[in-house]
Design a binder for these strands. Sequence first.
RNA 1: GCCUCGAUGGUGUAGCUCGGCCAAUCAUUGCGGACUCUCACUCCGCAGACCCGGGUUCAAAUCCCGGUCGAGGCACCA
Length: 541
Amino acid sequence: MANYPNLRSKVKELAQKLEKVVKEVNSLTTEEVDRIAHQKYAEEIKEEKKEREVLPDLPFAEEGKVKVRYPPEPSKHPHVGQMLSFCINDMLAEKYKGKRVLRFDDTNPEKVRAEYYDSFREVIHWMNLKIDEESLASDYMEVYYEKALDLIKNNYAFVCLCSREEVTKLRSEKKPCSCNLEHSVEKNTELFEKMNAGNFSAGEAVVRLKGDMKAENAALRDPILLRISEHEHAIQGDKYHIWPMYDFESPIMENITGVTHILRSIEFGKMREELQSLVSEKLGITPPHFLEYSRFKVIGAPTQGRIIRELVEEKIVTGWDDYRLVTYQALKRRGIQPEVFPKIIERVGVTKSSTSIDWSLIFSINRKIIEPKVKHLYFVDNPIKIDIINPELKKIKIPLHPYNKELGERTIEINDVLYLSGTDQDLIKENSIIRMKDLYNIKIVKKQSADTFSAEIHSQEILTDIPKIQWVSDPIEVEIEKAEMLYLNNRINKDSLRKVQGYGEKKLQELQIGEIIQFERFGYTKINNIAEKVQMNYIHG
RNA sequence: GCCUCGAUGGUGUAGCUCGGCCAAUCAUUGCGGACUCUCACUCCGCAGACCCGGGUUCAAAUCCCGGUCGAGGCACCA
C-alpha cells in the first residue's frame, strides 16, 4: 500500500477483492503454496533473506577513506566497555576498508600511569584488532602550545586568572569575567609565556576560549582549554607545566592523525561534540563526524573503571583480574575467548538505548566457541567413595571428545575404588543400579557411612533406563574457584567467590596450564596450576 | 535543578525515517522433544513484548500532543 498511494482511496473495494484471494490461497495446502511461491517469487524470497545490518552507516563515509580511533586513557586497565568500543571501531573500519589509530589520551599527568599503556596495547593485540598507527597525545605538547598561542593572537582565547569558584559562578550567571573583557592580546600572550615558564602554580591561571557565555550549552561558556599541572607525567616527566584539556587536545589530535569518524559511547555527550566542533572552527580545521552509542553494562558486574578501582583498593575483589570482574585481565583469566566480543556486538547491536549485557549471552557465545575444541574429562565434587567388592582391575581408554576424534583418548586405571559426585547422592542408594559412563554398571550394596558405599559390578552392557553418571578412579585432588555475580540486587554478594573441592582424573597432570576443559555435567573449567593439587577456575556451565 | 538521548517478551535487539507486507525479527533464558553412554554441542517444537493516556486515520509499534520511567551530560577528568 505504501508503494501504491493512489490505491488508498479504494481501500474498501480492495479489501473485498483481497478477501476473495485470501480464501483461495487458504484453500491450498502448505506444500502447494510453497511451490507456487517459489516459482513465481523466487527473486523476492531470496532478497528477504538478507542479513540484518548490525553496524550503523557512517555519515559521509567513503570506502577506503575512513579512519577511526581507539582513544584510551592509560589511567586504568581496560574493561569490557572499552573492549567492545574498540571492537565497534574496528568493525566499522573493516566495513569501510578504513584505517585505525591507537591514540593514548594521556594529557592528565595526575591520572596517567606507565603500566597501563601496555595493558591497552595488549588487549588490542589479544582481541586481534588491527592498528595502523599509534600515537601519544602527550607527544604533541608543543603543538597544543602553538595552537593556543594562535588562538590568543587571534583574540579567540585569553588567559584567565579567576579562581575556580569564580569561574563556576560566572558560568552559571552567564556573565563573562574581567579577564576576558580586559586583557589585551599582548597581555594574554605575556601571561601565557609566564604560565609556560612556570611562574604560576596549579589553579592560578588557565587558558580559556572566548566562547559564548550566554550559550544554552554550558560547555560553550568560555571553556578552559589548558591548565597548569605540576604533576610529573608518566612518560614526559616534569618537562611541561601546562596541559591541554580533553576538548582541546582531542580535536587537534584528530586533525593530526586524520581521523574521519568518532564512534564513542554517550558519556561524552552532545555538549562535548558542539564544543569540540567550536574549537575546531576557531582553529580553522574540519571536525570529524560523530556517532554515539550507549554504554555497555554487564548485569551483576561493575563496568565503570572508577568503581572497579575502588573495589580493588578496598580489597572487596582480589585484584583487577578477579573472576567476577569484566576487566580485560579478568575475562582473559576466566577463559573468555577473544572472538566473543565481535559476536556480542553482532547480537546486541550499536544503539543509543542503554544496553545491559547478560552474562548468559557471554557464556553462550563462549561455550559455542570452545566446545568443539576442548577435552572432556570427568570430575566429582564432594566425592562419595564406592568400594567395589568384585573389582575388575584393568586399564581402559575413553575418547577425550564425543565427536572431535583429533583430541584422542585417555587411559584410566580402574581399581577397586571409584568416586562419585556428591551432587549425585540422591541416586546412590542401596540396591540401585547405576551406569558408570564408559565403564560398567554397578549395583549399590550397602551404605557404610555418610560418604562411603560398597557396590558390586552388576553388568557391562548399556542399560537404557538407568542413570549414567561420571566417576573418577585413580584420583587426583582438584580445587576449583567459582565466581558468581558480584552484585545481587544492587548489593555486594559477599559469597560470590567460592572454592569447590573434588577429585579429577590423573590425565589432568599431563595438560597445559591455561588449557580449558569440559568436566562433563559440571561445566567448563580452566587449569591454572598443576602440583599435588590441580588448581582450576570455573568458566561457565 | 538544567540539557540531551532513549523506552518492543525475564534479558538484549529488529521493525519506527516513508502508517497497511507486524496476530511483530533474531538471539539469550525457561520448558519439552530428537541426537548423544554428559545437564555440553547440534537439530526440532513451545512459552513470553510494542511504557501510560489522549489525538489523527479506513488502518498506529510506526505520525502528533501530554505524562511516566530509565540512561548520560552539566570539572582547571578523559
